[in-house]
């Protein structure tokens, strides 16, 4: 019961980040919003693994936690004229 409230609150957080991703004046704002969405998503996946009661689903959350920062680093290196 209380887990469903958590899921709804996290959904509201993703909607707020989408608003910033649409509105943001510069590209850096949008990149920050995307980075926030990835962190929120990692927590959402772990909580959904608790809902489904499957231990092996945590591997997907581990992939998110390991790999998601590479996209942000690529965008940042492009913005500072790195690559």
């Amino acid at each position: 019961m209380i887990v469903s409230i958590f899921l709804l609150v996290i959904g509201a957080a993703i909607v707020l980040c989408l608003i910033r991703l649409i509105k943001g004046p510069t590209a850096t704002d949008r990149a920050v919003a995307l980075d926030t969405v990835t962190t929120v998503t990692t927590a959402l996946l772990v909580i959904l693994a608790l809902v489904f009661k499957r231990y092996i689903y945590l591997d997907v959350a581990l992939v998110y936690a390991v790999l998601m920062f590479i996209g942000s680093v690529a965008i940042a290196r492009f913005l500072e004229k790195g690559i």
Partner: peptide
Amino acid sequence: EASIGAALTTA
């Protein structure tokens, strides 16, 4: 989808 779509394709 997570590994291909969000990390590698973006880069």
